[in-house]
């Protein structure tokens, strides 16, 4: 009886944390007095980032958009926009709250459920990321004749893969938030740094096959690899990675799901561990003075 009441309370707190944090994240994210700057920062910057490699490919290949590697690269880069924005959105919340606004301790004194709070803080960036991804994809279809038909693609594969992948990214974001919590200094761009480091390992640019063997193994351990592979299969119907070709669509989905589950377990317990460290060392209200 008492535990039931408590559980209900926990759920209410979780929902509240998610809701308020989402609202807060959106306020912070969209609080550009200049809509032009907002557009540049939230949309044009990630789109430009995704396009750099596409343009490089076009220059090197002499404009061959017909090669199957082109849609491979294009989709990989388009969806990779999410990686940076979700990881940054969540891990940066700790820095924002603690260092910039000095409120982390007050948030920690209130009855929030911290995972949900962090997830909520990532929602706004995920939304702006989504707009950037859609624009990038539309641009690809119109300008580069990307062979994607949004209506006729494999929706049954796309949506589960897409959503599980986003959840996985959010969970990695929580892990990075934990790192941020215990290493306050000089950790401002851990989200983007990790996104950059994983860029080559999860087959965003070129198939894992071109990597040295041991890096391939790392790549095969990352949920993002299966995420991108699943998205490509759903949208293009094929994959350009011989290494992953033997896996059926179902297998890709199952591996994606289980590796996300594993990453989730690791991330959440790691965050709790960091939180305990932070309380032991008095870091929750620490402000790094510059």
């Amino acid at each position: 009886m008492a535990t039931q009441v408590l559980q209900r309370e926990t759920w209410r707190e979780s929902l509240r944390s998610l809701k308020v944090a989402t609202w807060l994240g959106w306020q912070i994210e969209s609080n550009w007095t200049d809509p032009f700057l907002f557009a540049v920062y939230s949309l044009i910057k990630p789109i430009a980032g995704a396009m750099i490699l596409v343009v490089m490919y076009l220059v090197v290949s002499g404009g061959q958009t017909g090669n199957p590697i082109f849609p491979y690269i294009y989709l990989g880069n388009a969806f990779y926009i999410y990686v940076g924005s979700v990881l940054m959105g969540i891990s940066y919340a700790i820095i924002d709250d603690r260092e910039h606004y000095g409120v982390l301790k007050y948030i920690y004194v209130s009855p929030i459920q911290v995972y949900f709070y962090l997830l909520g803080r990532g929602v706004a960036r995920t939304l702006t990321g989504t707009i950037a991804v859609i624009i990038t994809l539309a641009f690809g279809v119109v300008v580069f004749k990307l062979p994607v038909n949004f209506l006729a693609m494999n929706h049954a594969l796309f949506w589960p893969v897409f959503l599980i992948g986003l959840v996985g990214l959010a969970l990695i974001g929580i892990l990075l938030a934990g790192v941020t919590l215990i290493t306050a200094r000089h950790n401002y761009f851990i989200g983007e740094a990790v996104a950059g480091a994983l860029y080559l390992l999860c087959g965003a640019v070129f198939p894992l096959d071109v990597l040295p063997k041991f890096l391939q193994y790392i790549g095969l351990g990352l949920p993002m690899t299966y995420w991108l592979e699943g998205l490509r299969r759903a949208m293009l119907g094929t994959s350009a990675s011989p290494l992953l070709a033997p896996f059926s669509n179902e297998t890709i989905l199952i591996i994606l799901f289980s590796s996300t589950l594993l990453v989730g377990l690791i991330s959440l317990s790691f965050y709790r561990w960091c939180e305990r460290r932070a309380k032991e060392k008095g870091l929750i209200d620490m402000q790094t003075m510059y």
Partner: peptide, 14 residues
């Protein structure tokens, strides 16, 4: 709840 004085906090843009 808790208040600690002598410090500033709050989301500046709200």
């Amino acid at each position: 709840n808790m208040v600690s004085g002598g410090e500033t906090c709050g989301y500046g843009l709200l």
